[in-house]
């Protein structure tokens, strides 16, 4: 248990610091790389919770594809290597206030609601349980997501076409 908490602490610290990096860095590519760390940390947290499948999906989809897509987008929109001006707009301070207030409210709410509830992990969730759930209980959402992906595919193609 202690080992798990240590791992959690290390991952969480890395994630939070990287997340702050994502929203404060002046270099767009660095932001994407920070995001990689956050997401990889997230995958680590999933492993910690015994949810193996979703962890590797996160690695495959997010880090393997989404981030690459981001980097792609950045490079295609000609990001400067050493930006001179800030990447923030004039909402910096109000935004900070609102975000901190949001975290405060959420945190207070969570602490109030769950206090010391423990997660009792018996065994890691087996992949077959997940797939069974997807193809039995959640078959219609699954199909709908399929249609959504198709729509997104077509939409992206239509949007990005030059003619």
């Amino acid at each position: 248990m202690i080992a798990q908490n240590v791992v959690f602490g290390v991952l969480a610290a890395a994630m939070v610091l990287s997340a702050i990096g994502v929203v404060t860095t002046k270099n767009v590519v660095h932001a994407a790389l920070y995001l990689v760390v956050v997401l990889a940390g997230g995958a680590g947290q999933f492993l910690l919770l015994g949810q193996e499948f979703v962890a590797w999906v996160q690695v495959l989809v997010y880090i393997g594809a989404v981030i690459v897509l981001f980097l792609f987008g950045i490079m295609l929109t000609r990001a400067p290597m050493q930006p001179k001006e800030s990447l923030d707009n004039d909402l910096k301070w109000p935004g900070l206030v609102v975000a901190v207030a949001l975290v405060g409210i959420l945190g207070a709410l969570l602490v109030d609601a769950f206090e010391d509830t423990e997660i009792e992990l018996e065994a890691p969730t087996r992949t077959i349980e997940v797939t069974d759930a997807v193809f039995r209980t959640y078959i219609i959402p699954f199909e709908v997501v399929g249609i959504l992906l198709l729509a997104a595919l077509i939409g992206a193609v239509v949007l990005a076409r030059k003619d």
Binding site: F53, V59, G64, A65, I67, V68, F72
Partner: peptide, 21 residues
């Protein structure tokens, strides 16, 4: 690992990030 194949493919895709970097 229970999802060995999947894991292998997932981590092998990480190299793209390095290449782009």
């Amino acid at each position: 690992l229970d999802v060995g194949v999947f894991y292998a493919l997932a981590v092998s895709s990480l190299s793209v990030v390095g290449v782009l970097m």
